[in-house]
Amino acid sequence: MAKKPELLPGTLDMLILKTLTRAPLHGYGIALSIKRISEDVLTVEEGSLYPALQRLLLQRWVKAEWKKTETNRRARYYSLTALGRKQLGLELSEFEQMIAAIGRVLQDA
């Protein structure tokens, strides 16, 4: 079994927040979305979403709500809060700064 690239540490929260900017999603939806958009490059151990979601809930960056799915099943939908949107902006700019810095170092070397 080919080894998949590890997720950068600390980025899971950011990925979840970013995914939720488009629409409220349930856990499975979030996992699916990350996988699809990253074209299968980023796969998380799917279950690890849930402790992360609890952390985000506690920080009030997301909120959760039980709703019916299109197949009429009960699922917990997570959506971004204003606080979460601000946090995402913060994390994104930090992340971009870091990537840019790493990029510069790699090019110069």
Binding site: H26, Y28, Y50, R73, R76
Partner: peptide, 28 residues
Amino acid sequence: IVRFLKRLGILFTRERFRSDLDEEMAFH
């Protein structure tokens, strides 16, 4: 303080928290 209150809330609804988590994991 808010986080503490939230935790406290969850502490008293521990059963609910568990069943919710179970349900959404099973759903997944």
